[in-house]
Simulated assay, not measured.
Amino acid sequence: MALTGAGGGILAVPLLVFGLHLTVAQAAPAGLLAVGAAAALGALLGLREGIVRYRAAALVGGVGMALAPLGVWLAQRLPNAPLTIAFAGVLAGTAWRMFHRASASAAGRPSPPRPAPPPCVLDPGCGRLRWTRPCAWTLALTGAVSGALSGLLGVGGGFVVVPALTRYTDLPARSILATSLAVIALVSAGGLGAAMLHGAVAWPIAAPFAAGAMLALLAGRLLAARLAGARLQQAFALVSAVVALLLLARGLGVIGA
């Protein structure tokens, strides 16, 4: 998460599923706690540096918080196999998109065209986003999708937020990463709160998992300048693809719990 602004929940839940043999519904709240705590720490550090667009983060995160409980409610009522297959599909899609984008960057090919101008643009005079109706709707829709997936699958939603901010705003990369962490923290809090109301948080697992995630985020920030880049994105995408295949096999009953 420190290196890409996304990917925490995408790998946290499979780690718990395969490492501790939890169902997706059981692993999701622990993943949300870990991802949310680490993201909150990263967002606070970004706020100190002045690179978090907190108004945009509040809108995206606020809508996400409102939708996350619906995802949690569904997760507690759906069978594990469909949830596992759905998670595998989301993970595979994320891996494909990340690998394609990283390969284009490594080869020096231009990024895919985005709306010109994008719905959300910075005002050169004050350095803040210009709030228009298209901008607000775009950010709200981003929050709705990330919030629903957060509650349903235990992901922070960074794999939705980062591409959306990249495509629909003209924010610099560091600001996109820091703002996405603020959104992930808010959305994860909404999902975690709903999971707590359902009594679905396994604290003996979730608490140490979250502590490890926070320590890893601090370490990742120190390594970001050396490791971040197209090759790292490609490696992350390949790992995600392998995990997606394993989850699909688990969901289809090819490999046992």
Rank of each mutant, 00 (worst) to 15 (best):
M98A: 12
L197P: 04
I184K: 02
T138K: 00
F236Q: 01
H198N: 13
V162I: 12
A116L: 13
L59D: 00
N80R: 08
V201F: 02
P163Y: 10
V242N: 08
A228M: 10
A57Q: 00
G108E: 10
L70H: 06
A102R: 03
R133F: 15
L248I: 08
Q233P: 01
G253F: 15
H198R: 15
D123H: 10
L129I: 14
A224T: 10
L222Q: 09
L197T: 11
A189E: 01
F159R: 01
V183G: 03
L192K: 06
L218Y: 05
Q234F: 11
A206G: 08
P163F: 15
W203P: 11
G89C: 12
V243T: 10
V13P: 03
P110N: 10
I205Q: 04
A206T: 13
L15D: 13
A194R: 07
A30C: 05
I85G: 12
A148S: 14
R114M: 05
F99P: 02
P115T: 10
R231M: 11
L129C: 02
M196L: 14
A40M: 06
A12N: 03
P134N: 07
P204E: 08
Y168G: 05
P113S: 10
A95F: 13
D170Y: 11
V72K: 04
F209M: 13
A104S: 11
V72P: 12
A75S: 14
V24A: 10
P110F: 04
G253I: 10
I176K: 01
S103N: 07
S105Y: 00
P14D: 07
L15M: 12
V72F: 02
A88F: 02
L45Y: 00
L32D: 09
T4L: 12
V24P: 04
A6N: 01
A107S: 10
L67Y: 12
S111T: 08
A173V: 07
A140I: 05
A56G: 13
A58H: 00
A194N: 09
L122N: 05
T23H: 08
R250K: 14
T132N: 07
L141V: 09
V183I: 12
R101D: 09
P117R: 12
A194Y: 08
L215M: 12
A249V: 07
A56W: 02
A56L: 14
F18S: 05
L33R: 03
P204C: 06
V121S: 09
R174I: 08
L171S: 13
S150A: 09
Q76F: 14
A25F: 01
T142I: 13
A37M: 09
L41R: 10
L59Y: 00
A12K: 01
L165K: 06
P204H: 06
A34L: 05
T132D: 03
A95D: 07
A92E: 05
A144R: 08
A164Q: 04
R167L: 14
A185M: 00
